[in-house]
């Protein structure tokens, strides 16, 4: 009897998560690009936008502190994209169909798939934080704040991975997942990621940024770096991430059922 057939759900999740992690590690492009690209942008933006710190009302005197939250968000977006693409490839390649013939449970399939994204979330968050500290940023909330920052970053990464999983299950094609990538970046760029909301001059942009949940995710991370302990910012960030996880996990489970019925 196969390992899958005899195993309980945790073991099934472990098997699939291990496969997802190995798959990521064996593709350097999936590891290097999502980590290096946000750091390059961090360096460029913290030099290019440093003049903004001279504006009255800007929350910090060093743009690096302000911008440090952005790589965590970009890393989460890459996790969503890569996780979604891997799953879409499994669908296109018929791996999902073959799994459907085994006793593997649906939730285990989703959880296992997300294991890879979670792994990338943890690794990239640790690297962003380490690099940020090495190049001169500080964490106003101290060591405990750094731990909460890591927890929040991983939670956000997981939330976006759930979104990527849903898109992959619904669309079933890597190209469709790629097509969603610009949309993820639109969400990031139309938020308060690069400029504080109170200093955004254009009314329409400030309005969009205020309704964009990504603003609150970024501000949650940023609060730990710049302000210290800000209960409201943290509650909003963790709350939105938790809502995203709940919503996209439920949608993913529904999309998986639909897909398995189709096959």
């Amino acid at each position: 009897m196969s390992a899958l057939a005899s195993s309980a759900m945790p073991a099934q999740v472990g098997l699939l998560a291990g496969r997802a992690v190995r798959h990521i590690i064996r593709q350097p492009a999936q590891v290097v690009f999502p980590i290096v690209f946000p750091l390059v942008l961090l360096a460029v933006n913290s030099s290019g936008l440093d003049a903004a710190t001279k504006l009255p009302g800007f929350p910090t005197t060093d743009y690096l502190d302000f911008a440090l939250a952005v790589p965590f968000m970009q890393g989460a977006l890459f996790a969503a994209l890569n996780g979604g693409q891997d799953l879409a490839r499994d669908i296109e390649g018929g791996f999902l169909d073959r799994l459907a013939l085994t006793p593997m449970s649906g939730p285990a399939l989703i959880a296992g798939q997300l294991g890879g994204a979670l792994f990338m979330g943890v690794v990239s968050a640790l690297i962003y934080l380490t690099v940020g500290l090495l190049i001169g940023s500080g964490i106003a909330a101290g060591f405990g704040g750094a731990l909460v920052l890591l927890a929040l970053a991983v939670t956000i990464s997981f939330a976006f991975a759930c979104l990527g999983t849903f898109v992959a299950l619904r669309a079933g094609s890597g190209q469709a997942v790629q097509g969603f990538f610009p949309l993820f970046f639109v969400l990031l760029f139309l938020s308060s990621a690069f400029f504080p909301r109170n200093l955004i001059e254009q009314d329409w942009f400030r309005e969009v940024a205020t309704y964009n949940p990504v603003s609150y995710l970024v501000e949650g991370i940023r609060s730990l770096v710049i302000t210290g302990w800000d209960g409201q910012a943290l509650a909003q960030a963790f709350g939105i991430a938790a809502l995203m996880i709940a919503a996209f996990l439920a949608l993913s489970a529904w999309a998986l059922r639909t897909r398995l019925v189709r096959t």
Partner: peptide, 27 residues
């Protein structure tokens, strides 16, 4: 679409979101 949307989006995001920076000293 991508070749039109990307520059348009960058224009919108940068000109809309970062315009406050023009008030920085020496800009």
């Amino acid at each position: 679409l991508p070749s039109v949307m990307f520059p348009l989006f960058f224009f919108m995001a940068f000109a809309g979101g970062l315009s406050g920076i023009q008030n920085a000293p020496n800009f």
